[in-house]
Design a protein around this nucleic acid. Structure first.
Lengths: 197, 197
DNA sequence: TTACTCATGTAATGAGTTACATGATTTA
DNA sequence: TAAATCATGTAACTCATTACATGAGTAA
């Protein structure tokens, strides 16, 4: 990488201080495959979205900002029978920004659990409502787990090589699976504790 | 509860639509014990704060809003040698709001994991950096787990009754413990996968 | 004819962070 | 003499959500 490109990249990285995490999530997604804002919104609703959710409005806003900063570039594709679309791709600067970001330490994310806050105050409510809510929550986690496990069987019948491009997505999926299992077992513990297992 | 009080409470609940979750976290904390904004900031930094983090600026803002809405009331306490302080307490309306909120369904919180996004793009970075980051993250979870387990031994040598006021905090703490264990085992899986266990 | 998919946005509002501001007392 | 504790806030800003807006094609 040339010196010029490097200093440009440092300037861009300075603009992109920590905390602009949606930006990086989009860059990662675009690095995997170019896409329209609409496509990204759907991706964030499906695979990646289980770990990072974003509305299309927010995505368009961030895409515009990143295009102005030169991290992504768009190409207008005219379609007939369908609205025209802008296909976004990551640029060299965008990839450089990603690499810098990868090397920066990741702050512990503040896990904000409204459920935990409610649980803490459970003695103020009635038990039947609590049990119903925990059961519903458990069901959602079971459903999510099934979805993850189906994905794992479909896309990774055998674990990929640690050096391949699939290594990251695979490990994230494994984290999703164990995360759902943990959530389910916590629900079970709560139900057992209040005597409704 | 009188009809008048009931309709008042419905009006307040209407103002407090879903999504104002810090408000409810503060109400829960004040229901446990009256406190100043400063106290709350410290509580959010310690016990509750592991599940809900908030800055003192944000807390003061929300306290002002909730006092205007009649959910909390403050009493000025003049001190000498120290700055005067405002001690906030939850009101009957505040407690009613909490009870209503407890009965409303809890939407699945969008888990935003910057770490997961980075992991997904790991093939763009070098392995040593990844390993160092995962190790550091693991250490933090180990430390947090030790803190939780010490709390559990200290405050709950035996599990509380499911009907007591401690039941909620106890279950939240248990969730914290199993959550940390899960996080640690995910880190271990990642390290083993990239061959650095 | 109702609703869904494709496709892109603006406007208003709310939630949260960072920086700034003050000032006495106590501890190292 | 420097820093930490106690105590409360304002101002500026960013991030994210909700509501609103348009409009053709396609499937039930």
């Amino acid at each position: 990488m040339s010196l010029h490109c490097n200093s440009l990249h440092i300037a861009v990285a300075a603009q992109y201080g920590l905390g602009m995490a949606l930006d990086h999530a989009i860059l990662v997604s675009l690095h995997e495959r170019s896409a329209t804002g609409y496509d990204l919104a759907r991706r964030f609703d499906a695979s990646i979205g289980r770990f990072w959710r974003a509305s299309h409005q927010q995505i368009y806003k961030v895409l515009g900002r990143m295009e102005a900063a030169g991290l992504v570039a768009s190409e207008l594709v005219v379609q007939d029978g369908r609205p025209d679309k802008k296909v976004y791709s990551i640029t060299a600067d965008g990839t450089a920004e990603l690499v810098t970001w990868l090397a920066t330490p990741t702050p512990r994310e503040a896990l904000r659990s409204e459920f935990a806050v409610k649980l803490r105050a459970m003695h103020l409510g009635d038990r039947a409502t609590l049990v119903a809510q925990v059961r519903q929550r458990r069901d959602e986690h079971v459903e999510q787990l099934a979805y993850y496990e189906a994905s794992r069987e479909k896309y990774y019948p055998a674990p990929p090589s640690p050096d391949s491009e699939e290594a990251g997505p695979y490990l994230v999926l494994r984290g999703g699976i164990s995360g759902e299992r943990h959530a389910i077992s916590w629900c079970d513990e709560i139900l057992a504790f209040v005597g409704q297992s």
